[in-house]
Every structure is written in structure tokens, then in C-alpha cells.
């Protein structure tokens, strides 16, 4: 049997399976009569289950079902963002400031005419000029505006939140709630709010930041004490990456649990 026949057989089997699933799900479990909302609900649940399984099928190997689901996802999300952007920003923010007629047409309360709202409108139109091969260069004006303002905005905020505040956050006491060596050992505890943990946290913050910065210092060769600190720095970085990787595993498993719960509960009804 050749490949295309196999493809047809699989396609028919898949379509039949999901049609049957749709039909079964359309019937309410307790004696209620079949209704339009239940048919619609069943259709969406079945479609969602199909798309989920189509994406999962990539784990076996790349196939047309996966490609279909992926393109559907990309297309739908792009269109969704565009529609929401249009209604929330264009209709929600711009129209009420430039035209009472259009505000009435779109059903939003008209505020007052504000001439400077034409500036973003013109920049927006310039951005769309990208679609034209001749006037494409005009979009650079709008892009330059976006890049410039974002860079300016980010520079100050980053400097403040990620630089100045973070630098001052490294000023930490090495001895927390210190009442002497005797008390430290007699009250020793590994609890997350305990003295030892708090002190360890501060030591790690200080040494980690210090050595991490030295690792990223490129103007001096990493030899001697400097080299040792840099090695500690890379160790700290690697531990951070390990933690990050562990967290990612947790995140991915959560997403898998979410999808499986949908399949088992919403679609197949296997759970209570």
C-alpha cells in the first residue's frame, strides 16, 4: 500500500473518531434533551481535544496534523491580538478623542477633541507604509520613534530598578540577629525564617553578586585571586541555571497536567 493511501485511511479514521466523539458528547448525561448549546459545547470541546492531540502527535514525529494545529494557533493568535488591539486602542483610546461621529458609530462615549492624538495616528499610518514597496522607507520614522522612546524609557527604569536598587540590595548584614557564637549554635535551626538561613542567604547574595560581576569583567585576565573569584562566579551562574532549568521542568509538567486534565475530564469525562 502506498503512502498517500495510508494518509487517506488515517485521515478518515481520525475524522470519524472525532465526529463520533462530537455526537456522543452532544447528548447530555442525565436524561435532558439534546439542545443547540450542548451541541455547540460538544463541538468546541471535541475540536480542542483534536487540536491538543494533534500537537502531542509531534512527540512521535512531525506530521500534517501537527502542522495544521500549529498554523491554526499562529493564525488565530495573530488575528486575536490584532482585533483586540483595534478595539481597545484604536476604538477605545483614539476615536473618542478625534471624532464624535466615529465614536457614535463604534458605540464608545465621546470625550473631547484632543489634537495631539493625531500624532500616534499619523505614526501608525506611517508604520503601515511598510506594506508598500515604494513608500516603505516612511515606516522607519515611526520605527525610529518607537525604538527611541522605548530605549529612553527603559534606560531610566532599568537603571533605577535593575541597577541602583539592585546595587543597594547587595548591602546586606553578614550577621543577622547576632547574639554571640554560643547562642548561634544553641538556637541553630534550618527553618526558612531561622537565623542560619537568613545569614546564609545574605552570604550567598554578597559572594554571588561579587564573584558573578568579576566573571563578567573582561579587562583583566582571570588569574590568581581574580581567577579564583571568577571561578566561584561561574559556579554561582551554573547553580542559577540549574535552578532555572528545574523551574522550567516544573512549568512544562504543569502545562502537560493542564492539557491531560482537559482530555481526561472535559473531553473523556473520566474524572469525578
Amino acid at each position: 500500500m502506498n503512502g498517500s493511501r495510508w494518509t487517506m485511511i488515517v485521515l478518515i479514521a481520525v475524522v470519524t473518531l472525532f465526529l463520533v466523539s462530537w455526537a456522543i458528547k452532544s447528548f447530555p448525561s442525565s436524561g435532558d434533551t439534546i439542545s443547540w448549546p450542548s451541541i455547540r459545547h460538544a463541538f468546541f470541546v471535541t475540536l480542542a481535544a483534536f487540536v491538543t492531540l494533534a500537537i502531542f502527535s509531534f512527540l512521535y514525529k512531525d506530521n500534517p496534523y501537527y502542522k495544521f494545529a500549529e498554523h491554526l494557533f499562529v493564525g488565530v493568535s495573530a488575528a486575536y491580538w490584532m482585533c483586540v488591539g483595534f478595539w481597545s486602542t484604536f476604538v477605545g483610546n483614539l476615536i473618542p478623542r478625534i471624532s464624535p461621529g466615529l465614536s457614535k458609530f463604534f458605540g464608545v462615549p465621546y470625550k473631547e477633541f484632543t489634537f495631539y492624538y493625531f500624532v500616534p495616528l499619523i505614526l501608525g499610518i506611517l508604520l503601515l507604509m511598510r506594506l508598500s514597496s515604494k513608500a516603505g522607507w516612511l515606516s522607519r520614522w515611526a520605527l525610529a520613534f518607537i525604538v527611541g522612546t522605548t530605549a529612553g524609557l527603559n534606560l531610566i527604569r532599568y537603571l533605577r530598578s535593575d541597577f541602583i536598587s539592585q546595587v543597594s540590595n547587595t548591602f546586606v548584614p553578614l550577621l543577622v540577629q547576632w547574639k554571640g557564637t554560643g547562642a548561634f549554635f544553641s538556637d541553630f535551626s534550618l527553618a526558612s525564617g531561622g537565623q542560619f538561613t537568613l545569614m546564609l542567604t545574605n552570604w550567598v547574595i554578597f559572594i554571588g553578586t561579587f564573584c558573578g560581576l568579576i566573571y563578567f569583567f573582561f579587562s583583566k585576565e582571570h588569574k590568581g585571586v581574580f581567577g579564583a573569584a571568577s571561578r566561584v562566579g561561574i559556579w554561582v551562574l551554573m547553580i542559577t541555571f540549574g535552578a532555572s532549568f528545574g523551574y522550567t521542568v516544573m512549568g512544562r509538567v504543569s502545562l502537560l497536567v493542564g492539557r491531560l486534565t482537559f482530555l481526561f475530564d472535559d473531553w473523556l469525562g473520566l474524572m469525578n
Binding site: F163, T170, F171, V172, L174, F210
Partner: peptide
Amino acid sequence: DYAKAGVILIALVGFILLNFGVDGFKEFF
């Protein structure tokens, strides 16, 4: 690189001052 050296220096100064009970330096930030 020099900015990083500056940060290391500031961090060290702030850290030493704080550990010797001088809190005022942190307020500058």
C-alpha cells in the same frame, strides 16, 4: 567593564559600612 568595577567598589563600600553599623550610605541609592 569600568561601570562593573564601579559597582563592585560601591557594593564593597556599602557592604562594609553596613556591617559596621553605618546605614546612611544606602539612603543615597
